[in-house]
């Protein structure tokens, strides 16, 4: 082997293998498959901000309604615990949550501890290759049943897509200070077909933050 091949002048160390990780010991790790009523979703985004800032933004639980869909309030109940309220129309879901792992600038893991939801998740923040920005990876798990099916019916989004959208919103907010929105624009009469398409396209799910909590 020539020296040029051995030196790898630009190679980066491998990412660490946290639970949500995509690479473990140099091998690609596919996302967990749905099994025994448990659903998994893994999603990631490349964000132009430091891991530290993104960690701080995610860890600020009371500000989560600013970027997570349908979450109307998160109240801190302790150092690592919080109470969550999710609303759509006149329906409400509530649950408690606790943080299981808290590694500043790197990783947060959590699970629900009671109420209308059975979920657990993890987010990891890693400096992106080349040192430009951060790769944020979320792994979330739900137990199907009451929570997921209720969520699906009231939110009009399946819970997996909601996790993907929430990371998208988080990234937009971190990079630009706002989440792109098309609700509240003028339009001509939608008719029945246009109206049905709006629901189908998920456009009835309110883009966070809810309009009545936007400071303008």
């Amino acid at each position: 082997m020539s020296d040029a091949l051995r030196e790898k002048p630009n190679a980066e160390p491998l990412p660490k293998s946290a639970g949500a990780g995509v690479i473990v010991n140099g091998r690609y790790l596919p996302p967990p498959v749905d099994k025994d009523g448990k659903q998994w979703v893994r999603t990631s985004a490349f964000i132009q901000a430091s891991p530290q800032d993104l960690y701080a933004m995610w860890r600020d639980v009371e500000a989560i309604p600013l970027w997570q869909e349908q979450i109307t309030a998160v109240t801190r109940t302790g150092d690592k615990t919080s109470h969550w309220v999710m609303k759509s129309g006149d329906k409400t879901l509530e649950w408690d949550s606790e943080i299981l792992a808290d590694e500043p600038g790197e990783r947060i893991a959590w699970r629900s501890t009671g109420g209308d939801s059975d979920n657990a998740g993890e987010v990891i923040f890693e400096t992106a290759p080349g040192g430009l920005g951060t790769v944020a990876t979320v792994l979330q798990e739900f137990r199907m049943g009451k929570f997921a099916s209720m969520w699906e019916t009231i939110v009009g989004r399946n819970p997996k897509q909601a996790v993907i959208e929430n990371l998208r919103h988080f990234k937009a907010l971190a990079e630009t200070g706002e989440i792109p929105r098309n609700q509240g624009q003028p339009h001509g009469p939608r008719g029945t077909v246009g109206g049905a398409k709006e629901s189908l396209y998920g456009e009835k799910v309110e883009t966070p933050p809810a309009m009545d909590r936007k400071a303008s």
Binding site: Q48, E165, A172, E175, T176, R181
Partner: peptide, 25 residues
């Protein structure tokens, strides 16, 4: 274009990550 995502920074404005509210579609 948002001006701040990695694509905007590379001047690939039409590939901006942050301006499509219906990106999932």
């Amino acid at each position: 274009a948002c001006g701040n995502c990695s694509f905007c920074k590379k001047k690939l404005w039409a590939a901006c990550d942050n301006t499509n509210p219906n990106a999932h579609l």
